[in-house]
Nucleic acid binder design. Structure first.
Lengths: 195, 195
DNA sequence: AGTGCCATGTAAGGAGTTACATGATTCG
DNA sequence: CGAATCATGTAACTCCTTACATGGCACT
């Protein structure tokens, strides 16, 4: 649902062609969410069918260029004016998995949590490194990518906190007194990841 | 991708029929992610086609019951053994929207951020209220729902923090000295929401 | 001359949603 | 009796992904 709007928003700046749209989208979001070219074309077709875009012939290099229509501009304005609804949030595979894990018998939920924690910490480290390598935001594109990266960081941090919370709750439910598993050299706290 | 696995996991406990599966899924995840009945049946068909399930005739009330196969059990085990990949996280409409907002000219990004913040704070309040109303987890189903709810809470908190971070960064980029917009009676901090 | 990237598509299929059709049962 | 809910589906459609077809152009 967001690709459609994004393409429209990009075309608000100037008419573009398919490959260019993908490039512009990815330069603003980094390699985080690679966008399939095929999808760009099919989405453009639907947008044209719905009257939000129109084919604008070819540019100097012979590219098939699309131009936004007035209704398209309205759509973009409406998109930015309306907050993303958090009433029915997108399904979170991890939350679903844990919800199933605690109800299905014979599953070692603590192990599931620990494995996920390791994976998420690794992601957190990757993001932190990427951020360290990122340029000071000069162009708007740099700023956009930085904001996206930071949103991933915040989300991953929250996920780790939630996993720790789950671990604690599971320990309490199991009624077992944790032997305070300091494994020693493992990176454990979010502060350590931040360096 | 997670519905498929969830249905399998539920059938690991005992054979069930379509409506029952939806009810079990929703009782574990609350009303958060309503599950379409139609999707249950189409997913069951695909799972049967793939040899992970098999039709097990009818139960005493004449319901069309499905039973998990050994390959199905393998699939479930593999699902729980593999952490959710955070390498290519699911697309976040909000992050995409802000990334587009800072690059498209003529958009009041700060206003977009503020509107979203209000919406997310509202969601946070709803979750907090739900949690206050939730029972002490006696059954496993209660625990599952509580964990899901808390995952939503953690995610919404992180979103608010990120939005504030964006706001600060945008202020810095705009080079304007914030006049410390204490609007007075607005609920602003996460601590206030916690009551 | 061949490899590889740019560019524009189409095809096939999974996943998800909304909506409709059809019967049984239950409840006021 | 009528309405609502349970139950099992099917249809149409969007969105998204993977893969393939085709052609130009550029570099070695």
């Amino acid at each position: 649902m967001s690709i459609r709007q994004s393409l429209l928003a990009l075309l608000e700046q100037e008419p573009m062609y398919g490959y260019q749209l993908r490039a512009e989208f990815e330069s603003r979001t980094g390699a985080t969410w690679p966008l399939n070219v095929g999808q760009v074309y099919t989405t453009l077709s639907r947008l044209e069918r719905d009257g939000l875009l129109e084919a604008a012939g070819q540019d100097d290099d012979g590219h098939a260029v699309y131009r936004i229509t007035p209704s398209g501009r309205d759509e973009v304005r409406a998109w930015f004016a309306t907050p993303v609804s958090r009433e029915t949030p997108p399904r979170d595979e991890l939350a679903i998995k844990l919800a199933m894990a605690v109800t299905v018998p014979g599953i070692d939920v603590r192990a599931v949590v620990q494995r996920q924690r390791t994976a998420t910490i690794r992601a957190l480290q990757d993001y932190t490194r990427l951020k360290a390598e990122a340029p000071e935001p000069a162009a708007d594109g740099d700023l956009a990518w930085l904001l996206v990266l930071e949103s991933l960081l915040f989300a991953a941090e929250a996920e780790v906190r939630w996993l720790d919370h789950c671990e604690a709750r599971l320990a309490r439910v199991a009624g077992d007194r944790r032997e305070s598993a300091e494994s020693g050299s493992d990176v454990t706290t979010i502060e350590e990841v931040r360096r």
